[in-house]
Design a protein around this nucleic acid. Structure first.
Lengths: 237, 237
DNA sequence: AACAGAGGTGTACGGCGTACACCTTTATGA
DNA sequence: TCATAAAGGTGTACGCCGTACACCTCTGTT
């Protein structure tokens, strides 16, 4: 018994075990009760031990989000775009419902992890594959953004932008390397980012007009409401 | 000088002054730096003094949200529903942009204050006045919900519902009084709540099917995307 | 056998919200 | 006029939190 416990404790901690334990704990006791101390206790370890595997609590939360991103089904192949998008959104919703803490956590993330970028890239790809223009895809992504996921326009800031104004601009070479990396890892995001840049003065900054995006989605909804109203739609309850 | 300071300090604190100071402080230093201690310091007072005017930090945040609800313009009279709704949403958005801390705070509120209920009631009224059915209005409110504001279906839980299952049900008399109060203070909310109840088994519980509401809004957007795609819409940049 | 580095530990600091007992001011009404 | 009660401000303290920093202890390599 004691030996087993000993042996179990000897299994060294690692990032994945920490993240998995965090997700489970948050599922069980709620995100407001997930503290570094409590998590460490759950893992039979002293709080500071966690910091050998994750930099800080923010990174822990980022990792937890990545975990649930991994639970979202991949796009079903061979179906029309609308079906593909619809099923994927509903899959994402199911993942969020399984982990009620996820929505608020996602909404407070400021870093965009590769896993989230990959999800978004894949999402963009579904529209492009459906024949949508880069332009329309761009706005459509914004319109869907807050509905199922936390992604907003800042995405382009972090991944492609270079908005810092106090420090000397990144060396052109490094910037080119960055762009190459983006293009390879997130080809679809890259496509719409480039398309947006064309309509704009900036080269890689986010060419997003928040107000425009907001009104785009709002008017889409209002027009939809109007149509339903005109045809005396009813939920048929 | 000292006397002036003294005199100023003699102006007794009150709930409004506390809330106003909190809003200003959050505007200036960000919501993450708004602590009871810091706020007290800003008001030249010891932290515990605040608790004579507000119950706890949650209530402080509730009050701050009420303050910004008060900044949203009232509906413009005499315009078609679409214009009225559109302008009001954009006014709400402007209020949120003035106070960047407000969005996250609204999203974490669990209590629905009278001020928020009043805003929602007025919002519902705009659709009803435009000839929308109670049914369509109900779904439309859900579809708009997360876009501009934090209100979700739980609204009906708190205000009209009686979902507690461990305690004896509220006395019929008290419940009737509650209903009367609801009907008077929030007539429009009351209307759609009653309409929803008809389609459902429950009498006053929230007759909302989250999944249905989610898909309603999602499909509205997807249909909108489809239409734009078919007509080769472009943002015209 | 010596050692380096990875991983776990213990202590400590400065923050947080707020319970509780206390003091001070001010308005009341006998 | 003066006792009194209430309202409002104070001081101390508790138990949380995240995490910096110095330390110890294994384990695999040379």
């Amino acid at each position: 018994m004691t030996q087993l416990a000993e042996a179990a404790r000897r299994v060294p901690l690692n990032r994945d075990r920490v993240l998995q334990a965090a997700v489970t704990l948050a599922d069980e006791v709620g995100i407001e009760s997930l503290s570094m101390r409590r998590l460490a206790q759950e893992l039979g370890v002293v709080p500071m031990a966690l910091y050998k595997h994750i930099a800080n609590k923010e990174e822990l939360l980022d990792g937890m989000v990545d975990t649930i991103v991994g639970e979202i089904d991949p796009p079903v192949p061979g179906a029309p775009w609308k079906t593909v998008v619809r099923l994927r959104v509903l899959s994402a919703r199911r993942a969020l419902l399984r982990h009620p803490w996820a929505r608020p956590v996602i909404e407070t993330r400021t870093n965009t992890t590769p896993a989230v970028l990959g999800y978004m890239d894949s999402f963009v790809g579904m529209f492009l594959a459906g024949g949508f223009s880069e332009d329309l895809t761009h706005h459509v992504m914004h319109a869907l953004g807050s509905r199922m996921w936390g992604f907003t326009q800042e995405v382009f800031d972090d991944s492609a932008g270079n908005g810092a104004k106090d420090q000397p601009r990144i060396a052109a070479e490094a910037q080119a390397a960055m762009a190459r990396h983006m293009a390879q890892s997130y080809p679809n995001l890259f496509r719409i980012a480039m398309a947006a840049a064309h309509d704009d003065q900036s080269v890689v900054g986010n060419g997003c007009d928040d107000q425009f995006e907001f009104e785009f989605a709002l008017d889409l909804l209002l027009d939809g409401f109007e149509r339903l109203h005109e045809q005396n739609w009813t939920s048929g309850g």
